[in-house]
Simulated assay, not measured.
Amino acid sequence: MAVPAAHEFHWQNLARLSSGRVYHSLAEVGGQLYMLGGCDATGRATTCMELYCPEVDQWVSLPPMPTARAGAAVAVLGKQLLVVGGVGKEQHPLKAVEVYNTEEGKWRKRSSLREELMGLAITVKDGRAFAVGGMGADLLPRSVLQQYDLRKDVWALLPPMPTPRYDASICLQGSKIYVAGGRQCKRLVKAFEVFDMDSRTWSSLPSMPCKRSYSGVLWDNTGRLCWLGGLRQGGIHQSSKFTKNVSIFDTNQGSWLKSEETVSMKTKRADFVAAIVRGRMVVAGGLGHQPSVLDTVEAFHPEKRKWESLAPMATPRCSASSIMIRDRLLVVGGVNQIPSSAHEILYVKEEEVV
């Protein structure tokens, strides 16, 4: 199927949040969008939970989380939302674990983590959640890999990662969990490792080409990791710089593509939204060398092998949360000097918009 042309992508403003929000978590259950926690305009973590109702274009308040938190790891286990760790009201990591049953509309406290952790990465396989890394209350990174069984309400430790880190990017491909990048305190990590669930062993892959943070990270349907833009860490006496570089790892070849095989984005940016929409990599908003937050959007055309400009977002912002639901990209909240209440959807015009 041919990918859409640039002019076929359109933005639509949807119902704004009741207040500005950043570092909130988004999850989809049965095609419905849930928003959990985050920081409000005062910078404090909230217990807020809301459901977006497209039929009436409204956000509806749901029972609040038992624990206020921002930056929580959220996993979907059937009809239930598992909420793990994050940062609490006192700006400290949390070990609280809670489950929301979307059919009953009720929260339940579950077995806590062994210690307080923020910056966890989480994925789901065969009805079980796998949480990787994190930063503890001592501000040091962790190498822990833990598995959660919802039915038994038990956390089990699996073999730890070779490289401790938090804020890593992870992806499940078959029976393997790939873990790329992340941070160790203020230092960025180039390590790229994979956990094989069948053999219960970790392997090291070729390190990422450069250290960078606030990148866009995508996995395409061919099993390639695409690392887009971000902030490149400078040397001892050098400042960090925004980049438009694109690095791609091919899991089939087990190597990073050479730089001449990739195509850089049009604009240097970091802390932006990234998604694959109808076969095209899309990046939106973020921060660049300009003094203000970006509203620009571009998409990569795989046949033409070039990035093309799309219509801009109505509300420029960085640190926005995003999610793909039914081939549509929803961008919720973020920051534009203060936390934003904007909620926009990117869709292809040939479709009917809700």
Rank of each mutant, 00 (worst) to 15 (best):
N245W: 11
A274F: 10
S340K: 01
Q253T: 11
D295I: 00
F242R: 09
W227I: 09
P316Y: 05
T201W: 02
A284D: 00
G181M: 08
R16Q: 15
V217E: 05
G119S: 14
L158Y: 02
V132K: 02
S207T: 05
E303N: 04
C53V: 11
T251R: 02
L82M: 03
Y100K: 03
S143P: 07
I323H: 09
P64F: 02
G20S: 06
V283W: 04
Q32K: 15
G254V: 02
G127Q: 08
G71P: 01
R16M: 08
R21T: 06
P206T: 10
K349F: 15
G119V: 11
L51D: 01
L157P: 02
S112Y: 10
L33P: 11
S111T: 13
L26T: 09
L139Q: 13
V154Y: 07
E350L: 14
G254I: 01
A311D: 09
R183M: 12
H301I: 00
Q91C: 04
T163P: 00
G181S: 06
E90K: 14
L330I: 12
N245V: 13
V277K: 12
K152I: 03
S175R: 12
T243A: 12
L205V: 06
E344D: 05
P160Q: 11
T163W: 01
D153R: 00
V246K: 05
R269M: 13
E193Q: 12
L346T: 02
V353D: 06
G31T: 07
H237R: 15
R326N: 15
L231D: 08
M1T: 13
V348M: 07
P302I: 02
H237W: 14
P162G: 04
Q147N: 08
K152Y: 10
G286E: 07
V3C: 09
L218N: 06
V335C: 13
R224G: 09
L36G: 08
S264K: 13
A70G: 15
G20C: 04
I170L: 03
A68V: 08
M313N: 02
H237Q: 15
A284T: 01
L82P: 00
W227H: 04
F9V: 12
G30R: 03
R317E: 01
V60I: 14
